[in-house]
């Protein structure tokens, strides 16, 4: 779904069309949930956050130029806030989160070794399909830094999936 199509659906939702909400939920539930799980490593918490994202969308449909990025920004912020409540002092660059044991397939194991900062770059770019410029705006970091940190995160994943250490 393009940003333009999403805009139309959000307009329809604002006008009270219930069908628009179903279409938006159906389109975005999986990528948003994926980003939330990648960030928090907690499926139950991610379900609560997903619910919160879509309730906010329903109650106040955004009028953003890039609504897709807006939705993921909202999801990311909620996830970071939730992580902050658990570990308020750790900077994102150093913060690691425990992954739900049920998720411990190899990719998830590897993700567990990434910091939250790295997780969000990888998830927002690859799972949410956002451009690096959009990701940089969401995480409020310079584009160059985002590109660099993303590359490092992928290198880490490569090492981890190869059975190595960081």
């Amino acid at each position: 779904m393009t940003d333009e199509q999403l805009k139309q659906l959000l307009k329809a939702l604002e006008a009270g069309e219930q069908g628009a909400f179903s279409a938006i939920y159906s389109e975005l539930k999986t990528p948003v949930f994926t980003v939330l799980v990648r960030l928090t490593g907690d499926r139950t918490l991610s379900e609560d956050l997903l619910q919160e994202v879509f309730l906010k969308l329903y109650r106040q449909p955004p009028r953003a130029e890039k609504p897709r990025a807006y939705v993921f920004r909202m999801a990311r912020n909620l996830a970071i806030d939730a992580l902050r409540q658990k570990q308020p002092t750790e900077p994102l660059e150093e913060l690691l989160v425990q992954t739900d044991p049920d998720l411990k397939l190899d990719l998830e194991r590897a993700f567990e070794r990434l910091t939250v900062q790295e997780r969000q770059l990888v998830a927002l770019h690859l799972s949410a399909g956002l451009t690096f410029r959009e990701v940089a705006a969401i995480v409020e970091r310079p584009l160059g830094t985002v590109l660099w940190q993303y590359r490092k995160a992928i290198e880490k994943l490569r090492n981890l999936l190869d059975g190595g250490s960081l």
Binding site: K29, T30, P31, L36, L126, D162
Partner: peptide, 22 residues
């Protein structure tokens, strides 16, 4: 050792579907 592209493809294709109860 997986290539960068393979890792990216694996992450991209690895999706979490929320349960219907949400």
């Amino acid at each position: 050792r997986p290539t960068k592209n393979r890792v990216e493809a694996a992450v991209r294709e690895s999706r979490e579907t929320p349960p219907d109860r949400v």
